[in-house]
Design a protein around this nucleic acid. Sequence first.
RNA 1: GCCCCCGUAGCUCAGUCCGGAUUAGAGCAACGGGCUUCUAUCCCGUCGGUCGCAGGUUCGAAUCCUGUCGGGGGCACCA
Length: 533
Amino acid sequence: MIRDQLISALRTGLEVLGVSPVPDTIEIERPARREHGDWSSNVALSTAKRAGRNPRELAAELVTKLEEARLPHVEKIEIAGPGFVNFHLADTHLYELVREVVAQRRDFASSDVGSGTHINVEFVSANPTGPLHAGHARGAVVGDNIANLLEKTGHEVTREFYVNDRGVQMQYFADSLRARKAGQEPPEDGYHGQYIIDWATHLPDDVDALEWGYAHAKADQSEVLGRLGVEFERWSSERRIVDSGKVTDALDRLDASGHTFTEEGAKWLRTTEFGDDKDRVLVKSDGSYTYLTPDIGYHDDKFDRADQLINIWGADHHGYINRMKAAMSFLGHDPDDLEIIVTQLVKLVRNGEEVQLSKRTGDIIELRDIIDEIGPDATRFTYSLQSVDSRQTFDLALAASQGMDNPVYYVQMAHARLCGVQRNAAEAGIELQPVASVDLTQLTHERELELLRQLSELPDIVQIAAADRAPHRITTWLRDFAGSVHGFYHDCYVVGDGISPELTQARLALCDAAKVGLQVGLDLIGVTAPESM
RNA sequence: GCCCCCGUAGCUCAGUCCGGAUUAGAGCAACGGGCUUCUAUCCCGUCGGUCGCAGGUUCGAAUCCUGUCGGGGGCACCA
């Protein structure tokens, strides 16, 4: 790739000039302004001081060396500002891109940087005591998107759902079902939602309410996730973790590590040694486990199956990060291999008015209702739009609208339009030439070049998005790229009077490449790329 | 009290991790243009910001550091 060629040329240039030390990593970036070229490097600025040189003079010498290297596609190298080295590329690199993209199809922008690394991504992990609600949606979408990005960058990935199928919540759930079936109010600590009443009417007389409810909830959750395109490779049961001896094994090893102690009849873990506010109970004075304990055994188990763990947690679980990392550290794992991604809460509004999510009153917004209202694509796109660090405001009315204020349609429309052009060409009896024999130098319109420049950035964007666990960067790119597609579509007719057959062929190849870009991006966030709308 | 996230245009948000280019971006909203060729769910333009505030570091700060104000979340022998 051109980027790598430029970087290594810069490195060689610095070495030849005797700059010492040459930085370990040399970065080049896309300048914000077109006049500053296609790629820009600040190495002259960043190394000049240590080398005792004047930045602009160093840059000048560097440029001389780079020009001597006669790099492919490089048209012009300039020094600008305080000492930036700017590369201007010939359009030929964009034509090469079209051929690459068309040949690679959905593999475009893939890489193998993660090959050999197995990452386990655990997300959703809702209690099997009811349907998924709006609060679970962001984690579901973000987790699947991150898994997609990791796969795209060559990692082996396991999507995993942890089922808390033991403990008091399950009892409350079963008690609530039984009460409703008998026409009574659920217990105070029980579940009061409308769905309990509905489910109870289907509860047979001769079955264990807990097991029946468990199966029902799990099937319900799985079905809704499936509608969002979220499929888990593995559902891990808390019961099985406990029954397998994993938890007692982990407890024994924690004891052996010397990081536990007994006080007031309970067993504690010294998480304060890891920066926690206070030590945490592992085994209560009545002999039962706290929530944390099976979870420790579970994470230990995951480490047996993967190199790195990623957990997607809601902001309300932020307090658990330190204690889980402490436990993993005490068990001999590298705490940095357990990565916790915290998603901020989502404020659901409808026409600017907040929708309340109170579990206590049973007035929950089910994820199913959101999908019914706005569709799976708009749901995924909207949850993919923003950084997980920001508290998202999700306006259902906006996401449901099919107008221009809804970016999902804007992006999908771009894809549908490109398909439309291809259909149109086919109907006009135009025979597609293999891209190798197409004269791509016909592509000289600024709309065409801009579209290709943006397309050429996708591989970098994928790398960054994967490394930063930031799928919203894909969505942002898609929006911008769709804008370029619409601009091209508007100004550059593919078939028609005054369009030469050569130009038609070149533009058809460009349409094909642009379609691939949209497909790749939409795949990563789990949104469909429709042929027509 | 302690910990985490956020504060950028009227609104919703990118950009901040890893500092750069005397014009900080996008969409929506507002206003004004554009359909005799695949095309109006679209395209073009205008308006709009002391990047919460105050210091500091730097040749250079929305970006790094400190403090401060405002909003959200969390601080259980609950899950």
